[in-house]
Lab assay of single mutants.
Amino acid sequence: NKEHILAQKEVLTPIEYEHYVKHLFDIGEITKELYIELSS
Rank of each mutant, 00 (worst) to 15 (best):
N1W: 12
N1S: 14
N1C: 08
N1D: 14
N1G: 03
N1A: 03
N1H: 09
K2M: 14
K2H: 03
K2E: 05
K2R: 07
K2W: 14
K2Y: 09
K2C: 03
K2F: 10
K2N: 06
K2G: 03
E3Y: 09
E3F: 11
E3V: 13
E3P: 11
E3T: 08
H4F: 14
H4I: 04
H4T: 12
H4Y: 14
H4V: 10
H4D: 15
H4M: 14
H4L: 13
H4S: 13
H4E: 03
I5G: 01
I5R: 00
I5W: 09
I5Y: 11
I5T: 03
I5V: 09
I5D: 01
I5E: 01
I5P: 02
L6I: 07
L6P: 02
L6R: 03
L6G: 05
L6F: 08
L6A: 06
L6H: 07
L6N: 06
L6M: 14
A7I: 06
A7S: 06
A7R: 05
A7E: 15
A7T: 08
A7M: 10
A7H: 08
A7C: 04
A7P: 03
A7Q: 11
A7K: 03
A7N: 09
Q8V: 15
Q8I: 13
Q8W: 12
Q8P: 00
Q8E: 08
Q8T: 09
Q8G: 03
Q8F: 13
Q8M: 11
Q8Y: 10
K9M: 07
K9N: 05
K9H: 07
K9E: 03
K9T: 04
K9F: 11
K9Q: 11
K9L: 13
K9A: 10
K9Y: 06
E10L: 13
E10N: 09
E10I: 06
E10P: 10
E10T: 04
E10V: 05
E10S: 06
E10A: 08
E10M: 06
V11E: 11
V11C: 05
V11A: 15
V11F: 15
V11R: 05
V11Q: 12
V11W: 15
V11T: 15
V11M: 13
L12Q: 05
L12S: 04
L12V: 04
L12A: 01
L12W: 03
L12F: 04
L12E: 01
L12P: 01
T13G: 09
T13P: 11
T13N: 05
T13Y: 06
T13A: 10
T13R: 05
T13H: 10
T13Q: 09
T13W: 06
P14E: 14
P14V: 06
P14H: 08
P14M: 06
P14L: 15
P14Y: 12
P14Q: 15
P14D: 07
P14I: 15
P14N: 15
I15W: 12
I15S: 12
I15P: 11
I15R: 07
I15N: 13
I15M: 11
I15D: 14
I15H: 15
I15F: 13
E16G: 06
E16S: 06
E16V: 05
E16L: 08
E16A: 13
E16H: 04
E16I: 04
E16F: 04
E16N: 06
E16Y: 04
Y17E: 00
Y17W: 04
Y17Q: 01
Y17K: 00
Y17D: 00
Y17N: 01
Y17G: 00
Y17P: 00
E18G: 10
E18S: 09
E18A: 13
E18D: 09
E18V: 10
E18M: 13
E18K: 12
E18N: 11
H19E: 07
H19S: 15
H19D: 05
H19L: 14
H19C: 04
H19A: 11
H19G: 13
H19I: 15
Y20D: 00
Y20V: 01
Y20H: 03
Y20G: 01
Y20Q: 01
Y20L: 11
Y20K: 02
Y20T: 02
Y20N: 01
Y20W: 14
Y20M: 07
V21E: 00
V21Q: 00
V21T: 05
V21A: 02
V21G: 00
V21Y: 03
V21K: 02
V21H: 01
V21I: 11
V21W: 02
V21N: 01
K22W: 09
K22L: 10
K22S: 12
K22Q: 12
K22H: 13
K22A: 13
K22D: 11
K22M: 12
K22R: 14
H23P: 00
H23S: 11
H23Q: 10
H23D: 11
H23G: 02
H23R: 09
H23T: 12
H23F: 12
L24P: 00
L24C: 02
L24M: 08
L24H: 02
L24E: 02
L24T: 02
L24W: 04
L24I: 04
L24S: 03
F25W: 13
F25M: 09
F25T: 02
F25I: 02
F25H: 05
F25E: 01
F25A: 06
F25L: 12
F25S: 04
F25V: 02
F25G: 01
F25Q: 03
F25D: 01
D26P: 00
D26N: 06
D26I: 10
D26V: 12
D26F: 03
D26Q: 15
D26R: 06
D26G: 05
I27W: 11
I27G: 09
I27E: 09
I27L: 12
I27H: 15
I27F: 06
I27K: 10
I27S: 10
I27M: 15
G28R: 05
G28H: 09
G28A: 03
G28S: 06
G28P: 00
G28E: 03
G28N: 08
G28K: 03
G28I: 01
G28V: 01
E29R: 07
E29V: 06
E29L: 10
E29K: 07
E29S: 07
E29A: 12
E29T: 14
E29D: 10
I30P: 00
I30D: 00
I30F: 01
I30V: 07
I30K: 00
I30L: 07
I30R: 00
T31L: 07
T31M: 06
T31Q: 05
T31V: 06
T31P: 11
T31N: 07
T31E: 10
T31H: 07
K32W: 13
K32N: 15
K32Q: 11
K32F: 15
K32G: 14
K32T: 13
K32L: 12
K32V: 15
K32P: 10
K32D: 13
K32M: 13
K32I: 14
E33Y: 10
E33V: 07
E33M: 08
E33T: 06
E33D: 12
E33A: 12
E33W: 08
E33P: 09
E33L: 09
L34M: 10
L34W: 10
L34R: 02
L34E: 08
L34G: 06
L34V: 15
L34C: 04
L34A: 10
L34N: 07
L34I: 04
Y35N: 01
Y35I: 02
Y35W: 15
Y35L: 10
Y35D: 00
Y35G: 01
Y35E: 02
Y35P: 00
Y35V: 03
Y35A: 04
I36E: 03
I36A: 15
I36P: 01
I36G: 12
I36N: 11
I36V: 13
I36L: 12
I36H: 14
I36Y: 15
I36R: 11
E37P: 00
E37Y: 09
E37R: 03
E37D: 05
E37F: 09
E37C: 03
E37W: 06
E37K: 06
E37A: 08
E37M: 06
E37L: 09
L38G: 00
L38I: 10
L38Y: 05
L38C: 03
L38W: 03
L38T: 03
L38K: 00
L38S: 01
L38D: 00
S39K: 12
S39T: 13
S39V: 03
S39P: 00
S39N: 15
S39E: 08
S40M: 13
S40F: 14
S40E: 14
S40Y: 12
S40I: 14
S40K: 05
S40N: 06
S40G: 12
